[in-house]
């Protein structure tokens, strides 16, 4: 007799092994696939905010072309009326083009993935042996499913993250006294600290075993190299004096990054942060 929710929770602990191995196998497969696109969910999520407006803009342009708005500068008022009525149909007709555009974007992401494949396949061939032997009988993951696996482990503090990652990350405790820090790690590969102001993410810093751990594939218009006695970083953004992404390495081969989710950070502050991290 179940008398409370605790017993139901306990009973769930006795479910058939195949449902447990289904998840364990998924996570094991995910490790192999996630490293194929290093820290790979964020680029897709990030770039979606550019792809979707771009696709919408393309639809509008195609609708305008089809309705004759761009056919000449005369008769603007009648063209405008025509565009209004033709837009839904044009948008419908234009959808394959939009789809092609999206596929191109996806192909870019895939290309990025393939760039890193050589490196990661060597790592997975070494690291996946133990996971691969999980005695799993069931449906295999599609590549798309596997790419969605999240390898991050939430941690309570930096020490836990360091333990999971297997290396140290010198993040001063007072780096951002007014922000809340969230710590995460990928087993043997990466430490991430995300700074929030309330619900808003301000920026995140990473240290990992790859040279570029940013996971940021945006094409920035401004790029500069900053050297100091102890480090050299590439800072990228869309405006002079403001940085969206910084990437650098240390002499031991670890990669570091600082990325912003929303507003960029003043470049001077980014340099200051890098200095503090590399002390």
């Amino acid at each position: 007799m179940i008398t409370d929710k605790n017993k139901l929770l306990r009973a769930i602990g006795d479910i058939d092994d195949k449902y447990i191995t289904e998840i364990l196998s998924e996570d094991a497969g995910g490790k192999q696939n996630v490293v194929k696109v290093p820290f790979g969910q964020r680029p897709i999520i990030r770039n979606m905010k550019y792809y979707l407006p771009a696709a919408a803009a393309l639809l509008i342009v195609v609708a305008c072309i089809k309705s004759g708005v761009f056919s000449g500068f005369g008769g603007a008022s009648s063209s405008g009326t025509s565009a209004d009525t033709a837009a839904p149909q044009a948008a419908y007709e234009a959808s394959p083009a939009a789809a092609d555009n999206y596929c191109d974007s996806a192909a870019e992401i895939d290309y990025d993935a393939k760039e890193s494949e050589g490196m990661t396949s060597a790592e997975t061939s070494q690291g996946s042996v133990e996971q691969g032997s999980v005695n799993y009988v069931g449906p295999t993951l599609s590549e798309a499913e596997a790419d969605m696996i999240n390898p991050f482990i939430d941690c309570r503090n930096l020490r836990e993250a360091e333990e999971i990652a297997g290396f140290e990350f010198n993040v001063p405790e007072d780096l951002e006294p007014d922000l809340q820090a969230v710590y995460r790690a990928i087993d043997g590969k990466l430490i991430e600290v995300i700074y929030f102001d309330g619900d808003e993410e301000i920026y995140r810093i990473r240290k990992g075993t790859d040279r570029d751990v940013s996971g940021d594939y945006n094409d920035y218009s401004v790029s500069m190299c900053v050297d100091s006695a102890a480090w050299a970083a590439e800072l990228k953004g869309y405006k002079d004096g403001l940085t969206n992404c910084a990437v650098w390495t240390d002499e031991d081969g670890f990669g570091y990054s600082l990325t912003t989710e929303a507003a960029p950070i003043k470049t001077d502050r980014v340099i200051e942060i890098i200095d503090l991290l590399m002390q």
């Binding site: 409370d4 139901l8 009973a11 479910i15």
Partner: peptide, 29 residues
């Protein structure tokens, strides 16, 4: 949080289950 959510499954917080734990395991499976 899990317990609060699972409470929905047992409504009045008292579920008489016929038989022993093994039967509940089978129901869950």
């Amino acid at each position: 949080a899990l317990l609060d959510e699972l409470e929905e499954c047992i409504a009045d917080n008292r579920i008489p289950v016929p038989g022993e734990g093994m039967e509940l395991r089978e129901i869950l499976n």
